[in-house]
Write a protein that binds this DNA or RNA. Structure first.
Lengths: 250, 250
DNA sequence: TGAATACGTTATGTATACAATAGCAGGGGA
DNA sequence: TCCCCTGCTATTGTATACATAACGTATTCA
């Protein structure tokens, strides 16, 4: 295939990884479905070697599962897997918050976090919140969590949290909020924002235990609301990633 | 290279991964050192494709680090990275213990754990503990922790703990104990064994918070002793993995 | 008619060839 | 003498060819 157009600005491996992840998360590839290398080669435009590297990375990321007889399939997740992932992430973020509090952070380091907070406050003034504003919220929330994680100054912990966040639905707020009706989401967002505020306060005052506790509560709120949201699945299509859940095996 | 002898019983990728991990952990490859693919091909006996897959896996595992200009280098760890990893693992195992306690486990499921405990008790009767017995202890301790993790019945959590345990020095007891003089280790092992006993008791009685707390304390004991052990580095060569630490960059 | 076996097809695992880039060394100019 | 530019070399990134194993299908025998 000589006429294949190659984008040299980004490695074929990364390109393939992004494309495949996109296909999985968008639901083009269903959970349990075997991923054909040849098919992936065609859809991604990369050749087999980078595609295989991408598949290995996605397996390590937790999105794929190796088939004993060879090849990979899209991993299927149960409702409990998802709530466990949320709680897991909350636990790790709790540790990060505690590290930040105990190790101390300067006012300058907290500045970006507070800007995030203020921006979210601004969004939450809308009642009810618009779809656009909600989308902005999801971005800002992710940013807040990433910044908080960084504050721990612990590379191993940051790495682990990144891994735990690889599964998009493990991101508590973004996931759960997307599922609730936007009107209901408003209340949840307000509580979540309060959690954000408290964790900053705790870190500022070097209250490690409090910082940790509030992040764990943050996750438990998400789990609780996940259960509610799953009870009436009206908003299950708000996040493409949810296609994963629909076909979950158990 | 036609005369290369190929072992078909295990995949070349796995073979290469094991061989490379061994080289890293044994210290043949020093932290910060670039891993040459060609060299890896020669030492592992696999060709470049499986070697590359193994390198990607080891990177995801946290043993290697990608070099921006291409290729991989052995990751270097600071003392804080190591103590953070221990605390991280303790936190995750604490969550696992809590899950086990809250979700309930049958007496039959606790049986293997108790057998482990009894076997360790047997070893600890020796005063001072012999090198052989200590080696058995390390194995039994790893088994105990693995079984405990399983009790959580949470695939995402088990997966994450496995990842966190990939770094061998993140295994609290095995690592810290190896560094302390064996005579000192005896006391530490006895306390660790008490932790083990308490976590089982807590799980049996469905005391989630207590189960979690004791596992975290277990890790903190390890961190504390790590600091002590690093102060007088007499036993740094007991575990080959420690070669990593010697050349840690910061 | 059903089950088992054999054969063919297809997909993955592996090896290697080719291409491109980064790093280094040597030489020339300022 | 020092710096920069150019060319070479070595190593990685990518593509593809080949081998092998698994799965499906068809045919035959009981």
């Amino acid at each position: 295939m000589a006429e294949r157009e190659v984008d040299r600005s980004v490695s074929q491996t990364v390109k393939a990884q992004l494309a495949l992840r996109d296909q999985i998360l968008s639901g083009s590839l269903r959970p349990g479905e075997r991923i054909s290398e040849l098919q992936a080669v065609e859809t991604t435009g990369a050749s087999r070697t980078p595609v295989r590297m991408a598949l290995v990375r996605l397996e390590e990321e937790g999105l794929l599962e190796a088939i004993p007889s060879g090849g990979f399939m899209v991993k299927a997740f149960s409702e409990r897997d998802i709530s466990d992932s949320i709680e897991l992430r909350g636990t790790l973020e709790g540790l990060a918050a505690r590290f930040a509090a105990e190790r101390g952070v300067s006012a300058r380091e907290l500045e970006p976090l507070k800007e995030c907070l203020a921006a979210i406050d601004e969004l939450l003034r809308q009642v009810p919140i618009s779809v656009d504003a909600f989308s902005s919220y999801v971005t800002l929330n992710a940013r807040f969590h990433a910044l908080l994680t960084e504050l721990s100054r612990s590379p191993p912990l940051i790495r682990q949290i990144d891994r735990a966040s690889a599964l998009p639905f493990a991101s508590p707020s973004a996931f759960v909020m997307a599922q609730s009706a936007l009107a209901e989401a408003q209340q949840i967002l307000i509580i979540a924002q309060e959690h954000h505020r408290v964790v900053i306060d705790a870190i500022e005052n070097r209250e490690g235990a409090r910082a940790e506790a509030v992040m764990r509560e943050h996750a438990r709120l998400a789990v609780r609301n996940l259960r509610l949201a799953l009870r009436n699945r009206t908003h299950l299509d708000l996040l493409p990633a949810l296609a994963l859940i629909n076909a979950a095996t158990d």
